[in-house]
Structures are given as C-alpha cells and as structure tokens.
C-alpha cells in the first residue's frame, strides 16, 4: 500500500485517548507530532487536550507531557526549555500546546512574555473558537456571529475574533504561521519548519474544528476547516520575523456554505452572512497587501 508523501508514517498518539468522536484537536496533535517526532516534550495547560491526553496514570501521547495551569503554557514551556538546556539537551523540541482560551485570553500574558524574551520553543494554539472543555463559553477567539453558552440566543457574539497571528507577529518572533487540519502536508511542513527555526518563539495557529461546540456532524470536522480555508475566512499563511508574509493559497468560495453547515451559526440571516463575507473580504485584502509589500525591512 502506498503511503502519502509529505505525511510521515509514524504516529505518537495512542488510540483510546479521550477526544470526542471527530475531534479536530486530536487530528491537529496527530499531525504536529508526526512532524516533530519522538524528541519532543509537550506542555499542556488546562483545556480539552488536558483531558484528551488521558487522566493519571494514563497518557495518550508517546512523548513526555507536562500538564500545567491554565494561564501558564508560555511560562511553563520557558522553564522546561531552561531545564533541558541545563541538562545539555538541545535536541529535544519543547511544544506548548494550548487552546484558544489558553492562548488568546488567560494565557496571553505568559505567551507574550515568552515571545518578548525570545524563548526557544514552539507554541501551537489549537483553536476551536471557544472554551470547549467547560461547555462552549466564548473566548476572544470566538468569531462574530457565533452562539455560545455565554453569548446565547439573540446575544450571539457581535465582536470580531482577535487576530492572534498579528498580535504575535507584532512581537517580531522569527516564525508565525496558520494551519488547518484539512491540509496535512501544509501543516506538517510548517511544524518541521518551526522546529528548525531558532531565535525565539515559533507560533502556529491551527483551526481545529469541534463537532460538539460547532454543532456539526462529526464526519464534517475536516470538511468544515477546508471550507474555512477555501473561503479565505481562515487563510493559510506564514510570517517571517513578524514582517515577511507568504500566502500559501487563495480560496475562491463564498463563506456562506461554511457558515450554513454549522449549527453554531444557524440563527444568522442572509444579511448577517453578507456582513461576515464583507469582513472576510476586507481582511483578505489587507493580508494580501501585506504579502505584496516587499519594501518592509528592519534596520
């Protein structure tokens, strides 16, 4: 049987882990570890992944995992890195792996601090656009239009999703990128790249669907993240040194099918979808401008 080029064969996840059926976050970790390999240590703050990885005395990963407090992924990863360095182990990659709540909100200060200090680890945010583990509360990553437990009924979220890659790029970290679980080769390439880049925190923002919170059938978990990319709602791109943008692909589909396939947006009217389309179009135009802008250079 043929294996696919660009997708390493070995998995570092054990079956029997505790993700819901069709969990995008589980697929995201699967790809990340395929790329990073056995010489990896994972730092996990409170999140769904804190549960997925198994309750003591079990582990769902074949590499070491350090569970840590919700707000502390950036700080704990800094400490783990320092400990490895003291031991003379420069080979092992530290991967901080946090949800959107743990990244955009409560963990933002520790991540920002680590980024500013130029710590040497990969920080991956698997973004399911709400606090899923505690029952779908809104985070600053929750998109405009979504209903959550804390933005219910007619109070659906009216504010925009925070642009976390821009916030990290503003720290002038050496590498920031977005990834989607629908594009395994692209995501794996980015993790391989992040492992080799040195000189600061490497940040990867992954759109990882959550069938339970997004109200989609579990089999659509990959398809939905593909549509997010194909509609430019979640563009795939890379930022070098916080300045140099590379767009990986350009979508050509409207956002409507993406929105309409998800129960979390089922209350939106056609006008509101049009409003989302406008936001996507203007964000995409802005991003393209950044990618086209070759003059930026730091002195």
């Amino acid at each position: 049987m043929k294996h696919r080029e660009g997708v390493p064969d070995i998995d570092y996840l054990y079956p029997g882990h505790l993700a819901c059926p069709g969990c995008g976050a589980a697929i995201a970790m699967k790809f990340a570890l395929k790329a990073l390999g056995p010489k990896t240590m994972v730092v996990l703050p409170a999140s769904c992944w804190g549960i997925i990885a198994g309750a003591y005395p079990q582990t769902g990963l074949k590499v070491p995992v350090m569970h840590t407090a919700f707000a502390t992924a950036g700080a704990a990863a800094s400490g783990l890195r320092a400990a490895l360095d003291i031991k003379g182990d420069t080979e092992t990659t530290v991967l901080a792996w946090a949800g959107d709540g743990g990244t955009f909100d409560i963990g933002f200060q520790s991540l920002s601090g680590a980024a500013e200090r130029g710590e040497d680890f990969i920080y991956a945010c698997y973004d399911n656009e709400a606090y899923m583990n505690t029952g779908v509360q809104r985070s600053s990553s929750t998109p405009y239009g979504m209903r959550t437990a804390t933005t219910p009924g007619t109070s659906w979220k009216r504010t925009r999703k925070k642009n976390i890659v821009e916030a990290l790029a503003a720290h002038r970290i050496p590498y920031a990128a977005t990834a989607s679980i629908a594009y395994p080769e692209d995501m794996i390439r980015k993790f391989v790249r992040a492992r080799s880049v040195k000189g600061g925190v490497r940040f990867i923002h992954i759109l990882a669907s959550c069938p339970a919170g997004w109200r989609i059938p579990s089999e659509s978990a990959v398809k939905v993240t593909r549509l997010a990319v194909l509609s430019n709602l979640f563009p795939l791109y890379e930022v070098k040194d916080g300045l140099h943008y590379t767009l990986n692909m350009e979508g050509n589909r409207p956002v409507r099918p993406y929105i309409r396939m998800q129960g979390r947006f089922s209350h939106l009217t056609e006008e509101e979808i049009e409003r989302i389309q406008e936001m996507v179009d203007s964000d995409w135009a802005l991003l393209k401008e950044k990618a086209n802008c070759k003059q930026i250079s730091i002195k």
């Binding site: 054990y14 029997g16 882990h17 198994g54 079990q58 582990t59 769902g60 074949k62 995992v65």
Partner: peptide, 9 residues
Amino acid sequence: RSKISTEGH
C-alpha cells in the same frame, strides 16, 4: 507520572 497508555480505553 503516568506510566501506562490510554490503550486500556
């Protein structure tokens, strides 16, 4: 420290 895998589930 966890010593066994989730394969038991």
